[in-house]
Nucleic acid binder design. Structure first.
Length: 253
DNA sequence: CTGGGGAAGGGGCCC
DNA sequence: GGGGCCCCTTCCCCA
């Protein structure tokens, strides 16, 4: 899954170069016609609520499911999750209840979960968040848990709570104010301030602040690299290099 | 242009 | 259930 899917990146100091992505034809569009309509995610200060995926109380469903075009329900604007109100505490999250099965006369059916709706707009709104996972989870005896900040869904409340931390960012660096989802991420960040590098390479004594970066570094000492091109058998120390190679450099593909 | 380093994100697993 | 840790992945920057 591309990281562009993760809204958090928008307010970090480092920003991916999305202009490149946006300028390219999306190769997955044809394959995934029902992918999430990212451009229609709520992005303003009201982004704390993602309408159709965040219905915790079945009793308010009729009000929430009055026909509204997806674009009208998702005003454009920069996403500012840091401005979320206190009502978006982790206690708010819960089990998503999709709209109950509508009347038999409804003839607009979701191809994923087979729920029917009385209008194309209602179906379209439902499909903003429906991936069919809830139905699969229900069929397996478990329930689906949807994030209210993004279309992600999980099979356990614990997993959802863990994910929601990536939106609420409760761990704040006292030095620079940068916020992180987990304490150990913050600790890793603090090393960038202190210069601490607890992970040393046994080959060259070079030290790293991050174990994964040491692991990647160790690949540079390896005769046989971990990632191999299936077309030309050339090996690379990093998957990202292999990807770059297959996309642009491999003459055998 | 390529490869490597730095920083950061996520899910999964274990305690 | 929450915290900590591990592993993997991604992105940016630079030599």
């Amino acid at each position: 899954m591309p990281r562009s899917f993760l809204v958090k990146k928008y307010f970090t100091s480092k920003k991916p170069n999305y202009s490149e992505l946006e300028s390219q034809a999306d190769p997955f569009s044809a394959l995934l016609p029902e992918r999430y309509p990212l451009a229609e995610l709520p992005t303003g200060e009201n982004a704390a609520c993602y309408p159709t995926g965040l219905v915790w109380n079945v009793g308010i469903l009729p009000a929430l499911y009055t026909p509204v075009s997806p674009s009208a329900a998702s005003p454009p604007g920069p996403l500012d999750l840091s401005s979320q109100s206190s009502s978006s505490s982790e206690e708010d999250e819960g089990r998503t209840s999709d709209p109950p099965s509508p009347e038999p006369a409804d003839c607009f059916q979701c191809t994923r979960c087979r729920k029917s709706y009385s209008s194309p707009a209602a179906l379209s709104r439902h499909q903003l968040t429906c991936t069919g996972a809830e139905e699969r989870a229900m069929a397996s005896g478990r329930s689906a848990f949807h994030c209210k900040h993004c279309p992600k869904e999980y099979n356990s409340l614990g997993a959802l709570k863990m994910h929601i931390r990536s939106h609420t960012l409760p761990c704040v660096c006292t030095t620079c104010g940068k916020a992180f989802s987990r304490p150990w991420l913050l600790r890793g960040h603090i090393r960038t301030h202190t210069g601490e590098r607890p992970f040393s390479c046994t080959h060259c004594n070079r030290a790293f602040a991050d174990r994964s970066n040491l692991r990647a570094h160790l690949q540079t000492h390896s005769e046989v690299k971990k990632y191999q091109c299936g077309a030309c058998s050339r090996t690379f120390s990093r998957m990202s290099l292999l990807h770059k190679h297959t996309l642009t450099g491999c003459i055998s593909s």
